[in-house]
Structures are given as structure tokens and as C-alpha cells.
């Protein structure tokens, strides 16, 4: 039986690719979340705070995966 982890791409090229996409996700997250610094409209805050946080968290997870897993492939 093949482990699901073995289906994930690994290796230096995969790590670089994942890191780049994670970094872009974090850039997007920073821009989205920064909107909260310029407006206090409740509806906008309710949208941008979770969305920006999620994008930054996804980038962090990508970084975590790349440095822990992908390099070991």
C-alpha cells in the first residue's frame, strides 16, 4: 500500500516551487489584511481579516512543508 505522503512531490525543485507559491500567498495575505489598517467598515473587516490570515497561514504551511518534507524526497 502506498502512503499518501509518497504521492506528494518532493525534492529540491518541488521545495523551491512550493516555497515560491507559499511566498506569493503570504504577499497576497499581507495586502489583503493590510486593508484592515485603512478601513473600519465592519463588513470589510469580517472578510479581510479571516481571508488575509488564511493566506498567510497557507504560506506558512507551505514553508513548513517545504523545509521539512520536500527536501527529504
Amino acid at each position: 500500500m502506498v502512503s499518501p505522503f509518497q504521492l506528494l512531490p518532493s525534492g529540491p525543485d518541488a521545495a523551491a516551487r512550493v516555497l515560491r507559491r507559499g511566498a506569493l500567498s503570504q504577499v497576497a495575505g499581507v495586502f489583503v489584511l493590510s486593508v484592515a489598517l485603512f478601513t473600519k467598515m465592519p463588513l470589510i473587516l469580517v472578510v479581510v481579516i479571516p481571508l488575509g490570515g488564511l493566506l498567510i497561514a497557507l504560506g506558512f504551511l507551505a514553508w513548513l512543508w517545504a523545509v521539512i518534507w520536500a527536501e527529504s524526497g
Binding site: L19, A23, L37, F60
Partner: peptide, 27 residues
């Protein structure tokens, strides 16, 4: 994607965004 990039990524993708995210949530 070697050593230097990984070390740099600790700051750029790990520590600073996490710190900024927490500060933004508090703000």
C-alpha cells in the same frame, strides 16, 4: 533552493509574517 534560501525563508516566511499576523489580529 539550498541552504541560504532556506535560512532566508525562516525570516521571510516564518518569523516575520507570523509576528505581523499576530500584531494585526491584536490591532
Amino acid at each position: 533552493a539550498g541552504g541560504t534560501a532556506r535560512v532566508f525563508s525562516v525570516l521571510a516566511m516564518g518569523a516575520l509574517p507570523a509576528l505581523w499576523l499576530m500584531a494585526m489580529l491584536v490591532y
